[in-house]
Amino acid sequence: MAAPILVADKITKRFGDFTAVDSLSMSIQPGEILGLLGVNGAGKTTAMNMLLGLLIPTEGSIQVFGKDLTKHRVEILKQTNFCSAYTNLPSNLRVWQNLHVFAKLYGVKNWRQRMDELLELMEIPHLKDRVTGHLSAGESTRLHLCKSLLNNPRLLMMDEPTASLDPDMADKVRKAIRHVQREHGISVLYTSHNMRDVEEVCDRVVFLHKGKILTEGTPDDIKRHFAEESLENVFIRVARSGDMVPMGAAVEDAEEAEAKAHAVAETGAEAEATTRAPGRKEGDASSS
């Protein structure tokens, strides 16, 4: 097995008395798309910020490409990139001007050719001369993707890239991410609140809750673990109960769990599914 692209070893982040991330250990394999899931406040953004070098962990260490992130930050950042729905590129620059600046920042040779390839890939070559601030949300997201792929990164961090997109555009973006990952074998760390995104895009998922790993595995593993028919149900269940289900906890037979979930879904009593699913604590107040 090839060496992991990224290894986080027991990273903890405390802000005063509050622990945002608690002894998190995870790794990303070459060519893998790893989803980082969790309800609001679970610690995913804090974890991603530490992996990007924007935050220094209180404890623990991060190795990227086999090098310590704190000591080799610039060297590592040359081979990574970042795409977020919550940042903008300078709105008063034209699309090509923004891509030119970031291509130079990442030391991209033949930036014009690379820019044209990426604009084609994202189906926005006609926007090259447009002012960035005049783009729609979907266009802006695709421009961000172009920016994040300029340097052919070995590791790409994506923070809710499809947030605020309509279903059609979100589908296009998901396909583009999959395409790029297949073509170039890049590793991706992906956060999203859109569980369809995660099921479609991610090879493996780490589910964070209160700063700790609640469970991890393929999307199917996670569903089986919680005996839910969709990741969305898992998400809702965790959000509403705050249950801490230990990793590797025994689950009912997958088929039985699936049948149970279907039966519940058919009666329309979705919330009921959470009370019956295995791994649930008996008598949890929030389940009523």
Partner: peptide, 18 residues
């Protein structure tokens, strides 16, 4: 401040800039 106003701070600080 230009980067703050255009919400570009993170893009700049995750770029390989010393």
């Amino acid at each position: 401040l230009e980067d703050v106003w255009t919400r570009n701070v993170l893009n700049v600080f995750v770029a390989p800039i010393r």
